[in-house]
């Protein structure tokens, strides 16, 4: 019984951490229409930097500054944001799918970097060992896992509340306006490139924060955790839940992560021995199918975005349309 409960606590903790990252993606994609093809880069940067800043000293390697956990966590999130600035400056003004390619590229680059920069990242073996916050005070591992779950859920609630406020603020409306019609937004005197960059960076900071929580939870991070599949999983969660809807993002996380874990368990207990090697292959196909089928069949997800349509009187409406028409002509 206690085994089952501790498994559930484990599952919920990971889900809550992932949900934070999905919320970050929801700000980027769901609200601002920014395509992030390398979620794992920002997640991973946050994770690595957290553990480098806050972890114990490692022989012959840089890092291990032993900073207090909150500072290390914030440092990781900030680093993810900084990375987003570098990529974003080059791409937010360009064709939108360039950002998809550039972010996908940064994920590949970061993975290659942590695999090879042994002096900083421990290389392929990663960085192991981290004193988790308050761990010394709670000597029962089960109680500690409950405590950490509570902490993660609290963080999830804070991020959720913060993003909900942001999304319903004038800034959130601006982001959606840019997503729908960048040209019109620009003609209203807004600076779409800047707003998009801001949303991209804020989203990346949230992902980096989630990465920090993830590394804290395992007290371990390695290049394995930065595999591209994580990006696809996080997308699947957002698409299934409903891009643009924060509640949907959280629900989608639990649904997709539940499917992932359940399929993994089912394969390992039911599949014949010779197929075990291909369990991961089958699970990847599952994620691919979830993404494609959801986009085809239920493109707005389980909980679609509630669009706030502001009705305006007729003449203004035609004004907007004819300006769009002229745009089309030129």
């Amino acid at each position: 019984m206690i085994g089952l409960i501790s498994y559930l606590v484990f599952f919920l903790t990971i889900s809550a951490i992932l949900a934070i990252a999905v919320l970050g993606l929801n700000l980027q994609w769901g609200n601002a229409g920014i395509f992030n093809g390398g979620v794992v880069a920002f997640f991973g940067t946050g994770a690595y930097l957290m553990i480098i800043l806050g972890g114990p000293e490692r022989a012959g390697e840089l890092g291990g500054f032993g900073l207090p956990w909150p500072i290390a966590l914030a440092g990781g999130a900030a680093a993810a944001g900084l990375l987003a600035v570098v990529v974003g400056l080059a791409t937010t003004r360009l064709r939108h799918d360039y950002l998809a390619i550039a972010t996908f590229g940064i994920a590949v680059a970061i993975e290659a970097f942590v695999r090879n920069a042994t002096y900083l990242s421990g290389g392929a073996k990663g960085i192991r060992g981290f004193e988790r916050p308050l761990e010394a005070l709670v000597d029962n591992p089960f109680l500690y896992s409950l405590l950490y779950l509570a902490l993660t859920v609290a963080f999830l609630a804070i991020v959720y509340a913060g993003l909900s406020r942001l999304v319903s603020s004038p800034y959130g409306r601006l982001l959606r306006a840019i997503r729908e019609d960048e040209t019109a937004a620009r003609s209203l005197g807004k600076n779409p490139a800047r707003a998009r960059l801001e949303a991209f960076v804020i989203g990346a900071v949230i992902m980096g924060f989630a990465g920090g929580l993830y590394a804290t939870f395992y007290a371990f991070i390695s290049p394995q955790d930065l595999a591209p599949i994580l990006t696809f999983q996080i997308w699947a969660m957002l698409i299934v839940g409903g891009a643009g809807n924060n509640l949907g993002a959280v629900v989608g996380t639990f649904v997709v992560w539940g499917c992932w874990v359940a399929s993994g368990n089912a394969l390992s207990s039911l599949a014949p021995q010779e197929l075990q090697l291909y369990a991961g292959t089958l699970q990847y196909i599952l994620i691919g199918l979830i993404i494609v089928v959801t986009l085809l069949v239920r493109p707005r997800g389980l909980l679609p975005e509630r669009l706030q349509v502001t009705k305006r009187p007729g003449p203004q409406n035609t004004g907007v349309v004819s300006s769009a028409g002229e745009q089309y002509q030129s």
Partner: peptide, 20 residues
Amino acid sequence: LTMVFASFGVALIMRNLIAL
């Protein structure tokens, strides 16, 4: 961009079907 999304899913499916 939805097509870009889908293309990632398609890539995952194709690659792993080949592996299978």
